[in-house]
Amino acid sequence: MSTIEVENLKYRYPDTTKLVLNDLNFSVEKGECLGIIGENTAGKSTLCYALAGLVPHFYKGAYGGKVTVNGLVVRDHEIATIVENIGLVFENPFSQMTGAKQTVYEEVAFGLENMGLVRQEMHTRIEKYLKLLAVYSVKDKNPFDLSGGQMQRVAIASVLAMEPEVLILDEPTSQLDPQGSQEVFEVIEELTKGGMTIILVEHKMDKIAQYADRVLLLHEGRQVDLDTPENIFSRGDLTDFGLTPPVVTTIAKALGIQYPGTKLYPVTIEEFKRLGEDK
């Protein structure tokens, strides 16, 4: 069984008439990184909510179909149970600090206290994930005194410390400055290499190309395509969905640099270079 299975998922927010998610079907395997792209109204964040159980437990509304995470049917379990299997980090680092704790160290402990872990286990995990996310040096600071990049990494550490099977990152760098984004992407790179199952929503297409094994293309709540980054970004109709491919792919298209015997263009600089030289 796949780690995530989505079958005929449909959803509409309360007091609205339009389906935000319209008949989605896909699965995510263990250790895979799935990229989700689409313009602002495509339904990307709502899909993340549906995977983490916020839809339909926090946001009510009309819900159809089935989402299974780690063997758990999301609709039938409380959010508190679901989040031990799938963690969500979103855009705004500031509002992800619970405000319930005075230090970074305690902030990471918050989720673990709720899980009812024994004290020793908490300390072990907090130290481990603060170090992994390179925020151990600020462990005694007030979370609200950190920079955006540090705050976002504390948010990721807090979620990872609960050791979920899957991590969802919903535009984790869109409110950060270049350095903060870089810091967070370095972490994402580490995690993908370490075999974590990741769902990454991102506007920066070069990052999707770099990290995603497969890409889900959404438009107006519908699933347009689900394929490898090469296949997705080689599509000729991306602008119809409000998207552009990575710059390197645009250049490859203009120069006709393709994978031999296919209609596919390279999506990373390394591949572009390799194909260009072969040619």
Binding site: D206, V247, I251, A254, L255, I269, F272, K273
Partner: peptide
């Protein structure tokens, strides 16, 4: 990105627009 790509391809010249890098290549 365009400058980074040009640099990765080993060109010294500075590019800032997609179109000029394409033309150059």
């Amino acid at each position: 990105s365009v400058s980074q790509i040009a640099h990765a391809l080993g060109f010294e010249k500075s590019f800032i627009h997609e179109a000029e890098l394409i033309q150059f290549l």
